[in-house]
């Protein structure tokens, strides 16, 4: 059984059913809103949107929390320390060099909530949008840039091919590792230099294998009439539905409100 890429959670839900291009736009709008929010009221509004979205997405809350946990921990701790070094408002308590002020506490809390909200939106996006949908959406959204010579369709094709090869390369990596272990290699002994050198017998064969796949794939794609990216149709056509526009409009309204509250 191959490991799933990223954190796509495959289930049916209104959020999953949204057009991925619309979801990318929603994500951008909500991120901008989160940064422009300047009051707890505005932030609270975004939190409500986030919680509603999680509920409607049918992804278990525990899953969402586990997904954002590493990021939150990474960022919240420095933020928490930051609150001891801001001085504004009245002093709440002090302990040696650390002084906690009401202003510091407020700012730190605000920043923390904002960060959590950001991670929630980003995580929800990857949880509800399959890698293929992300590639299709990227292909569509980058398309205008091809007018300026940017190989947007080829980039999108590369993304989706890279995706397809992740399980294959994972498996091959496992095979290579077993083979080298069987030849007496150890990957967890010795100092940093020894360990770095120990990586060669793993990386070089994987590289060689990738290049061989790439070569074979190039022949296969050419044989199937792949020329450049523009002149091909798409089996999966992205089509927006009224629901997509309604959600987009609502979120836009909320966002504008958030900026002004």
């Amino acid at each position: 059984m191959k490991a799933a890429l990223g954190r796509y959670y495959n289930v049916q839900s209104p959020v999953h059913a949204l057009d991925p291009r619309v979801k990318i736009h929603l994500l951008i709008i909500l991120i901008v809103g989160a940064f422009l929010a300047h009051s707890f009221m505005g932030l609270a509004l975004l939190v409500i949107v986030a919680l509603v979205a999680v509920r409607v997405s049918h992804v278990p809350v525990s899953f969402v929390l586990r997904a954002i946990a590493p990021f939150v921990i990474m960022f919240v701790i420095p933020l928490a320390f930051n609150m001891f070094f801001q001085s504004s408002g009245e002093v709440l308590f002090s302990w040696g060099a650390l002084t906690l002020t009401s202003g510091g506490l407020y700012n730190a809390t605000f920043a923390t909530v904002r960060l959590v909200v950001l991670f929630l939106f980003a995580t929800l996006f990857t949880l509800s949008t399959s890698p293929i949908e992300i590639c299709d959406a990227t292909d569509y959204l980058l398309a205008p840039f091809s007018r300026f010579g940017f190989p947007s369709h080829e980039v999108a094709m590369m993304m989706s091919i890279a995706l397809r090869f992740i399980p294959t390369l994972q498996e091959e990596f496992g095979d290579i590792r077993k083979a080298q272990l069987s030849r007496g290699a150890t990957f967890d002994e010795g100092g940093p230099i020894r360990r770095l050198k120990g990586v060669f017998p793993l990386i070089v064969p994987l590289f060689a294998s990738s290049i061989r796949h790439a070569e074979g794939l190039a022949y296969a794609m050419e044989s199937r009439c792949y020329a450049r990216g523009e002149h091909r149709t798409h089996y999966h056509e992205l089509r927006t539905r009224p629901a997509d526009w309604i959600v987009l409009a609502c979120v836009l309204v909320v966002d504008v409100a958030v900026c002004f509250i």
């Binding site: 890698p131 293929i132 397809r164 074979g216 199937r224 091909r232 149709t233 798409h234 089996y235």
Partner: peptide, 23 residues
């Protein structure tokens, strides 16, 4: 080294897509 897509039907669709056939 011949598979282009992460789903079987998408891989089978690859050739026809290159032939610019409708959905």
């Amino acid at each position: 080294s011949q598979m282009v897509a992460s789903v079987v039907e998408d891989d089978v669709a690859f050739g026809p897509e290159n032939l610019m056939l409708p959905h």
